[in-house]
Design a protein around this nucleic acid. Structure first.
Lengths: 149, 149
DNA sequence: AGCGCATATCTTAATATTGAGATTTTCCCT
DNA sequence: AGGGAAAATCTCAATATTAAGATATGCGCT
């Protein structure tokens, strides 16, 4: 039926990648909303919790978003008392975002539940399949990032 | 170092899945912006092109978005003359969104370029790796969708 | 027929995100 | 030292998205 047997599967890959990510993310976001944060706020908070204080600029590099939005999201987390801005002594252009004690306590409470929501979301794959998928997706993600210019 | 050797990789999978999708999507979105549409508009247009006319409701099921946003996006595509609403004769609650001739001509022009952008974005995997990834992601996506309730 | 419930679309206000560019500070070059 | 390019954050207007609920229609039951 298919004269060109080894046709390119790139588009197909993109579709199933997007769809898998959308649906797993749907689980994650529904879970996050229970905590009174939006997904972006949660992502920033978790980044600061696990990776330590970050210059705002670097947050934008890890969670793809524009500089204006970083300001906005960090403002909101600051208003909620979960994060504080700390000026950088060496470079006065830079502000660090730092998680507060209240922020840590919040994530200590929320994170284990969130982990369970994620585990349920990806339960369609076996442990071995997860390992395979991780290897492939890591390779794909790094290559896509590097080729983005 | 790790007493519990077969620790759960679910979170790790979620992270690399999200990151791969973000960066591949970054390529796709940058490409789409060249055509003067936003990513959501493009996604709807492409859906109508490849899958035929759809009730607005079903668009929301395939491209995750709220009903209010569907109305908004279809309005914008209609204003641009790329899509038209067609009332459903059997059920007067329903509107179909249908791609116009202008919309088809637009995608005939844009789609081959877009395909190339996607191919470049996923070039980090070999043909064989793509096939493996497709199988795993399809399984993951379907399971995540079905377990979403 | 008529009532109640479900479904599809639309409306509106609130919120999130982007894009462009202003401001401040640093870095590099001479 | 001083000037210009680059970098980090912020501001602001425009746009996109959600959440909640309004409206209109269909479906099933009695």
């Amino acid at each position: 039926m298919n004269a060109e047997n080894n046709r390119d599967e790139s588009l197909h890959l993109f579709i199933v990648l997007s769809r898998a990510c959308e649906w797993v993310t749907a689980h994650a976001h529904r879970d996050i909303r229970r905590y009174g944060l939006n997904p972006t706020e949660y992502a920033v908070l978790e980044l600061l919790y696990h990776k330590g204080s970050q210059p705002l600029q670097q947050i934008g590099g890890k969670i793809l978003m524009t500089s204006g939005n970083i300001t906005y999201v960090v403002d909101k987390l600051e208003q909620k008392g979960l994060v504080a801005r700390k000026p950088c002594p060496e470079d006065r252009r830079v502000s660090f975002a730092q998680i507060t004690e209240k922020g840590k306590a919040f994530l200590d409470e929320a994170f284990p539940q969130h982990r369970k929501a994620i585990e349920a979301a990806v339960a369609g794959l076996s442990a071995e399949e997860k390992r395979q998928a991780i290897g492939l997706l890591k390779k794909l993600g790094i290559a896509a990032q590097e080729s983005f210019k």
